[in-house]
Design a protein around this nucleic acid. Structure first.
Length: 224
DNA sequence: AATCGAAACAACCGCAGGATC
DNA sequence: TGATCCTGCGGTTGTTTCGAT
């Protein structure tokens, strides 16, 4: 594409931000708002690339950031969301007010990962860690347990079902293809599993007389 | 007090994808 | 329609802090 790397400009500062740079960035954004990161450094009188300014603002200077240790509830929520979404840190961060994707990613790598390993769980798959020996004996016995967590997204119904704002809430979610067929397995409400009350995050309902449930997560409909 | 290793955190880099021309 | 611009994301690295020795 021939894009010019924004951070290779001469006379561009790198590394830790100074107090003065922070002040300049905050003052500029308070006066003009976020947006157009490319031109912001020059306009704000900063010798930084736009990318660096954005990162600094998003991860450190934003006034709505919650500093300090993660609570036990946040900890559990991150684990559950990671089990569902994988390394989608920005999506996970969107569910934790005041936390940034970078912060959660760091926290995951330094704390939670180790914690899960300590509990005998694979931090990527959230399945129990198995030794080579276990794996072989399990296969030999034909005990092929597949615990793959597969999530498919479906558009909520045109009205009701709590899905009216799903696009606004989950803009990063692409419009899923139409479902291949009727639900084929009993499903559970994932929101409930995450600890949300129904009025907080979902309005799950039985999808059909078959008793299957669609899980709404803040408006998005999951077949679980 | 000095040194070293581990942990924690901030920042950078490369890439993908949407927007625009 | 393709080229380019710009933003945002996830992985990774560099630096700082902290505790043990």
């Amino acid at each position: 594409m021939g894009r010019s790397p924004c951070c290779d400009q001469p006379h561009t500062n790198k590394g830790a931000w100074t107090r003065e740079e922070d002040d300049r960035l905050v003052a500029y954004i308070q006066a003009h708002g976020e947006g157009c990161w490319r031109s912001l450094p020059k306009a704000a009188g900063l010798l930084r690339c736009g990318k660096s300014c954005r990162l600094r603002w998003m991860n450190y200077l934003r006034p709505d950031l919650k500093r300090g240790n993660f609570t036990e509830e946040e900890d559990e929520l991150i684990v559950k969301l990671h089990a569902l979404l994988g390394n989608k840190w920005s999506v996970i961060a969107a569910r934790l007010p005041g936390r940034t994707d970078n912060e959660i990613k760091n926290y995951w790598n330094t704390h939670i990962k180790r914690k899960l390993v300590g509990q005998g769980l694979d931090p990527q798959t959230h399945r129990p860690l198995v030794t080579r020996k276990d794996e072989i004996s399990s296969t030999d016995e034909g005990g092929d347990l597949d615990l793959d967590l597969t999530i498919s997204l479906r558009l909520p119904a045109a009205s009701g079902n709590g899905g009216a704002n799903w696009r606004a809430t989950w803009p990063e979610v692409a419009t899923p293809p139409p479902p291949p067929g009727p639900l084929c397995a009993p499903t559970i409400c994932f929101c409930y599993h995450l600890g949300f009350r129904s009025d907080q995050a979902c309005s799950c309902q039985p999808a059909s007389s078959s008793g299957h449930f669609h899980g709404y997560y803040t408006g998005s409909l999951y077949k679980i």
